[in-house]
Design a protein around this nucleic acid. Structure first.
Lengths: 119, 119
DNA sequence: CTGAGACATCGATGGCTGTCAACATAGACG
DNA sequence: CGTCTATGTTGACAGCCATCGATGTCTCAG
């Protein structure tokens, strides 16, 4: 492999794992998957992800996201950072605005890991 | 519907939701899905679920599970309860032993919700 | 009935985390 | 330069939760 494990985002380490139901997960595999699930296991983050994913081109401006929640701007920024850090969202700055975009392949892989489809 | 929403396990409320990427999740939908993800977002629980699911007949005795982890018996029992409470595991007592079994349909639905397949 | 084993429950505790206010940064514009 | 706007960072705090030891409950054997 070209990168060491710790340089990869959690999302990039998921592809290597068989579905949950096919064989027991090792402790190391579990430790790599859990950050992804933790990132999703928050109402605000789940909605943020869904909002970005279902937006035009799977991409949304932070300015739009702030208004959709009853949370302070720093809190939204924090949640977006969490989703970005695990590799579920990509980030691009255009002028004054920042756009977050969904990583569809990441979601698909995680879904397969849990649902057991695509094996 | 025959049961009120609060009587349903979190797992039973997931089927009603479209995949994350197809349309924005409402706050209520998110609140119903999050408990499921929280249940999975722990290394011990993720491994427990995988261990049960990949076991013979998708079912395992607590006595086997206890030995597979470096955790106290009460802690394992607690984790199994969490997984059972959200509807990911079923529980049956046979003699002195307690068996937990995977709810495959629950996992499949959750996987579809995240991965967006099966729409 | 008594003891032992399997599992659940309880209470306490230390660590993690979601939230906010305050502040910092970085462009755009004049 | 100074200001305004968009976004990120920091520090603090309250609430949640994973974990454990102690204890309770249930079942079976003798």
């Amino acid at each position: 492999m070209s990168k060491s494990l710790i340089e990869l985002t959690p999302v990039e380490t998921v592809a290597c794992c068989a579905p949950l139901t096919s064989e027991p997960l090792s402790a190391e595999q579990a430790e790599r998957i859990v950050p992804l699930l933790k990132a999703l296991a928050d109402p605000a983050r789940l909605r943020l992800l869904s909002l970005v994913a279902s937006h035009q081109d799977g991409e949304a401006c932070v300015c739009d996201l702030n208004d959709a929640f009853d949370l302070s701007q720093p809190t939204i920024s924090h949640h977006l950072k969490v989703l970005h850090d695990v590799g579920l969202l990509s980030r691009s700055k255009r002028g004054v605005w920042v756009y977050y975009a969904i990583r569809e392949d990441a979601l698909t892989e995680l879904g397969s890991l849990i649902g057991g489809v695509g094996e």
